[in-house]
């Protein structure tokens, strides 16, 4: 589902990734662990095109979505609008000024999938951190992603919300998605991930 081969990335002379390989199958939940600066986030950002790798190849079988530590929803808009915006990639411009009924229905199903069917019309800024992260995951689902890349998805959350988000990510993997999560808590990785990949820092 996701294959990364020999990924290399250097920021201003500091090597962050030097020949990184990772293969993730559908239905698999992989946790990336490692110290700061070991290139975990950079690897994910290269996959979705937020960074351009210096070398190596990335192949995604389908469509990759990203979930961020800082969540990155538009706080003033409703959960529904934020989830609908996941569909923008497949909508022509004239149909993306106002979202059509079909997109809104799909978005409501995605919100239902993450357990927030009752908060559809709530402004995101009014939701708790854990709820916001689940809205962000619903946005990834509305993108019809087969691969979900989560960059420290629970680092900003309280322990209880973190558990909810981790359980949701495992369920999505069990439903057949490929999920990769950068984590800073080894115990969460051991509890939830199917496989743990340790990344080392470069001197």
């Amino acid at each position: 589902m996701l294959a990364i081969r020999g990924l290399r990335k250097t920021f201003g002379g500091r090597t962050v990734l030097d020949g990184f390989d990772l293969t993730v199958e559908a239905g698999e939940f992989v946790a990336l662990l490692g110290p700061n600066g070991s290139g975990k986030s950079t690897a994910l950002r290269c996959v979705v095109g937020l960074e351009t790798p210096d070398g190596g190849s990335v192949s995604v079988d389908g469509n990759a979505a990203m979930v961020f530590q800082k969540i990155h929803l538009v706080g003033r808009r409703t959960a529904l609008d934020n989830v609908c915006s996941g569909a923008l990639g497949r909508l022509p411009l004239h149909r993306s000024v106002f979202f059509g009924q079909d997109v809104r229905e799909e978005a409501v199903r995605c919100l239902d999938r993450v357990g927030l069917a009752d908060r559809v019309l709530e402004r995101c800024a009014r939701l708790s951190g854990g709820q916001q992260q689940r809205v962000a995951i619903a946005r990834a689902l509305c993108q019809r992603a087969n691969v979900i890349l989560a960059d420290e998805p629970v680092s900003a959350l309280d322990p209880q919300a973190a558990v909810q988000v981790m359980e949701l990510l495992v369920e999505l993997a069990n439903d057949g998605l490929a999920v990769v999560a950068v984590l800073h808590q080894p115990e969460l990785a051991r509890t939830y991930a199917h496989r743990i990949v340790e990344m080392g820092a470069f001197a």
């Binding site: 800082k70 923008l88 993306s96």
Partner: peptide, 25 residues
């Protein structure tokens, strides 16, 4: 910048990002 990046990942075009991330913010 965050919401803009998030929408870019979904494959949204420049005008779509302006409409759904920048202007509402």
């Amino acid at each position: 910048r965050g919401p803009r990046d998030a929408l870019r990942v979904t494959g949204a075009s420049g005008p779509q990002i302006a409409l759904h991330a920048v202007l509402p913010t």
